[in-house]
Write a protein that binds this DNA or RNA. Sequence first.
DNA 1: TTTAATTAAATTGTATACAATTTAATTATA
DNA 2: TATAATTAAATTGTATACAATTTAATTAAA
Lengths: 146, 146
Amino acid sequence: MDTFDCLKIENQLCFPLYVVSKEVIRKYQPFLNELDLTYTQYITMLILWENNKLKVKELGEKLFLDSGTLTPLLKKLEIKGYIIRERSKNDERNLMISITQKGKKLKEKAALIPEKVGKCINLSEKDALKLYELLYKVLYNIKEGE
Amino acid sequence: MDTFDCLKIENQLCFPLYVVSKEVIRKYQPFLNELDLTYTQYITMLILWENNKLKVKELGEKLFLDSGTLTPLLKKLEIKGYIIRERSKNDERNLMISITQKGKKLKEKAALIPEKVGKCINLSEKDALKLYELLYKVLYNIKEGE
DNA sequence: TTTAATTAAATTGTATACAATTTAATTATA
DNA sequence: TATAATTAAATTGTATACAATTTAATTAAA
């Protein structure tokens, strides 16, 4: 056990976090291709399926993404016809994002995806719940300290 | 409980995985700035501190990254003077990556980083171990099914 | 009520990621 | 051995991410 053991890749927690996140997202891709969505576009639609209309700011807070990422992404979703972008009448600084009928319809196809990806991840119910709990604990701790 | 509950953001496992990965990486940034490294460059250096010399192919397997990501990244690390890129004499297809003295020296500064980031993440030893175990279980399961 | 702060998106610039293709080197095969 | 198949990087093209800055709208303060 030396001073540098903390730098061994096998002792990192961040590394498997980073790799697993990417690999899980990669597993989504073939299914998302059928909906003409990227992963980031997909989680944006997840929020919009639960909230028909909201500000870019609110979307960013829910997704942990800033306008630098969302602005071009939302323009692409608008071109695909899944959402509408329009300035708020009350406050022109806010851009309101709302879902279209075509966007709502996507939800039916998307509903089949979580189970398919779940099979790839292949965790027991208990392990999945524990992982979920630990991830949100880390997220809470990180954000708490800011 | 309806058909679409599986699409609620709160029921996703992938979403906190994606968010936590990004947020943890963001926590590294201020510390890594002092070493003039990005997070991806940092994990590349982690591998090189353990393996003085290896092929881009091997590096990619360890990091779960392909040449499209590594080629430009390694060129940047070479410009910074941390690594050397040279074709293998035996097989010119292979590009050998080796660490320089300057690159080795970075290790001393880097050794302070894991503890600092650990404080932000702030998990108990037990929770951290469990998270580690679950992440590698997922990684194994995903890769198994390919 | 002008001017100063604040706020929300958009923009700019840099650095990944990765699928798909290309290039060059090596190996296997007819 | 000449050709085909394989392999490893590099390249191309698209889509994030995010820090930092800019722009435009709104609100607060002198």
